[in-house]
Simulated assay, not measured.
Amino acid sequence: MRKAERFQRFLEYFTTHFPEPETELAYGNPYELIVAVVLSAQCTDKRVNLITPELFRQFPTPAHLAAATAEDIFPFIRSVSYPNNKAKHLAGLGRLLVEEFNAEVPSSLEELQRLPGVGRKTANVVMSVIYNQPAMAVDTHVFRVSHRLGLVPKTAKTPLAVEKELVRYIPESLIPKAHHWLILHGRYICVARQPKCSICPLTNICAYYARQVAPLVKNIPSLPAEENGLPSA
C-alpha cells in the first residue's frame, strides 16, 4: 500500500468515528495545561490528574507558582515520576512566565521552549491543544503507532524525524486532532508489549499487522468504532 493511501485511510477512519478527540489531561486554562504537560513526562495522565487539583488550589496562577520554591512544590507532586526535577522546573517556569511573559503562556515554539521543563514535545502539545496550531507532538505512543502502521519509514529514528514525516502527509487542519488519534490508539489498542490487533480497526492498513500477524491469524474482523476500545467521542 502506498503511503499516501495509508494516510488517507487513517484520516478517513478517525474523522468518521472519532471526530473530536481531546487530551485526557484535566485543565482549565493554558497555565494549568502547561503545568500538567510538564508533570506528565514519563508519567501517566491518570496520575497527573490525581495530583493537579490540589496543586492548582495551592498555586492557582503563574504568580503563585513564581513565588514558590521547589521545596514548596515538591509535596504536591511527590507521587509523579522525577518529582525533584519537576518541582525545580515548575518553580522556574512560574518565574519566567511572570517575569518575561506577563503571566501568560506564550504561543510560539521558540518562546515555549525557553520555559524550564518544556521541550519540543511539550511545546507542541500546548500549541496544538490551546492554540489549535498545526503542531505534532511526538511522544512514545505517537512514535510507536506511526512506525507500526507504516505512516513513517524505519529511517525515522527520532521524534523530530517522525514529526516531520507526519506533518508532510496530514492536512494542517487535522494535525491537532491526529496528534490525539495516534496517542489514544497507542494508549488503548496499539499498546507497547502486546498490541490488541484482534480489536484494532486499522489492521487493513497496518504494516505491522501485515508483516507480523496476518501470516499467523486469518480473517480477524475489524470492529465498529463503538467496540474498538477507544474512549467515547
Rank of each mutant, 00 (worst) to 15 (best):
F74T: 04
L11S: 00
P224I: 12
F7M: 03
N85K: 11
H17G: 04
E5Y: 05
A26T: 10
Y188H: 05
V48Y: 04
G150D: 07
A26S: 05
I130E: 09
I73V: 02
K86M: 08
E54P: 00
K177G: 15
K46V: 09
F76Y: 10
I189A: 03
R148I: 05
Q113T: 10
A178I: 13
H64G: 11
L97R: 00
A63F: 13
T140W: 10
Y208E: 09
Q212C: 03
Q133W: 15
T23W: 10
S40M: 02
E226A: 02
P231R: 04
P116Q: 06
V105W: 15
H185F: 05
R187M: 02
P53R: 14
A210Q: 08
A103H: 15
Q194I: 01
C200W: 09
P30K: 14
A192H: 03
P134K: 08
Y13C: 05
N85Y: 07
L202Q: 06
M127P: 06
V125L: 11
K164Q: 06
R6H: 05
A87G: 06
G92V: 10
S107M: 07
E20R: 14
L182P: 02
Q194P: 01
V38C: 04
R47E: 04
I175G: 11
A192E: 07
P176R: 02
N29S: 12
I205C: 09
V129M: 12
R6A: 06
N228D: 13
S146K: 14
N49E: 10
E100R: 13
K196G: 09
L182H: 06
V138Y: 12
N228M: 09
V38K: 00
P224E: 15
F7K: 03
D45T: 08
T44V: 02
P195Q: 05
S198P: 04
L115K: 06
L90I: 07
I205K: 03
P215F: 07
G150V: 12
K154A: 01
A70N: 05
Y13G: 00
I170C: 13
L109F: 15
E110T: 12
A66Q: 00
